[in-house]
Design a protein around this nucleic acid. Structure first.
Lengths: 194, 194
DNA sequence: GCTTGGCTATAGCGCTCGTCATAGTCTAGC
DNA sequence: GCTAGACTATGACGAGCGCTATAGCCAAGC
């Protein structure tokens, strides 16, 4: 990325991720996106000539990679710490937005219709989930978890956190995320002492 | 069946739940809904005079209660059997639709924006989640799980299943649901033998 | 200085949306 | 048979959508 001569572009992508996480993909229009990022409408089609699908895809990737960075950093202190940071990250998102924001990756996964061809945004969502699971799995393996259980355990972590974020939004309560955090912590700890 | 005076109404609600589970709430128009249920557009406003929000709310309730019925029946054979049926139900939905359908309750939870007032459809989603957790919690209590763990365990089950359904859709694979099923089965079994 | 090319501004295309109004049809009960 | 009320049919409304076209701006390179 040797040339960030145009901060507009990244602002648009980041804003898209935020808006999608709040209102969903279909309810978010390109006009609103541009206004939210203080960019002109024409610019969005300049930077993303393939239109809304391309913008959504990049927004999903952007959000996915942001999580990857946090996860990679915090997993250095072990799986329990990593999972805790994963939960804390979403907890912060949900609380700071007063239960208005969720996960943009989940939003796209739920909304984007798998038509004849899999839409790129949906593929990006799958890749985001995969990368999170992979990081968790690597950390679990390094810390001696039962290899036969590792992939399923990582999938459970990602699935339960994503589900809990949505439940928090619906219930207007942080409880589901905290309950999942507590259960996962016990589970991961048990998987490492054996 | 005894021919209810207006089968149209229920057909519309059921069709709405199905369409929302596939394409999300905002991408589903009332015109499509009516066509899908072979009902005239005017009828939708006859049965649901408050418009799309009311229809969405009833669709969420309809879907939530359908799950409640399955869960109540299968939990009679114990928590493990109930959780297994819960998973199997979603597994069937996802596979039969070739990864095109998810959970309408989750879809609404992710899309509906908590504006000034909580929209009724979002409240209905919260109630659906609550009722599922309650049924699971009751069964766990009856079978001797640690009371301190019960609510969190039930929340974990619901959250992870909802998350896994969405992940299956994105990945075009049933694996996440199967992985979650396997992990939850071990977890519930362990929670009962103590 | 002048051209080039990345960015912005504005207007508009065709379309579908949610919603409403109104007139027509059907059916049950007297 | 007639009437009342439940349902259907049809068309329109303003608004917003994704997207395109085109003209203007403005810094960098010769």
């Amino acid at each position: 990325m040797a040339k960030p001569s145009t901060p507009s572009r990244e602002r648009i992508v980041a804003g898209a991720a935020d808006m999608i996480s709040r209102r969903g993909l279909n309810a978010t229009s390109i006009r609103e996106l541009a206004k939210h990022a203080r960019a002109p409408l024409g610019s969005t089609y300049h930077y993303f000539p393939e239109g809304k699908g391309q913008l959504a895809t990049e927004a999903v990737r952007y959000a996915g990679e942001a999580v990857v960075r946090v996860l990679r950093r915090e997993l250095e202190a072990g799986p329990v710490a990593g999972v805790r940071a994963f939960l804390t990250l979403w907890r912060g998102n949900v609380l700071e937005s007063d239960f208005r924001a969720g996960c943009p990756v989940l939003a796209v996964a739920v909304e984007e219709p798998p038509a004849d061809e899999t839409p790129p945004a949906l593929a990006a969502a799958a890749e985001a989930f995969d990368s999170w699971e992979q990081l968790l799995a690597d950390a679990l393996r390094e810390h001696g978890a039962d290899p036969a259980q590792i992939p399923a355990l990582a999938a459970l972590v990602v699935a339960s956190v994503e589900g809990a974020v949505a439940m928090c939004r619906a219930k207007h309560s942080i409880q589901p995320l905290d309950q999942v955090a507590q259960q996962l912590e016990v589970l991961i700890t048990a998987a490492l002492d054996r």
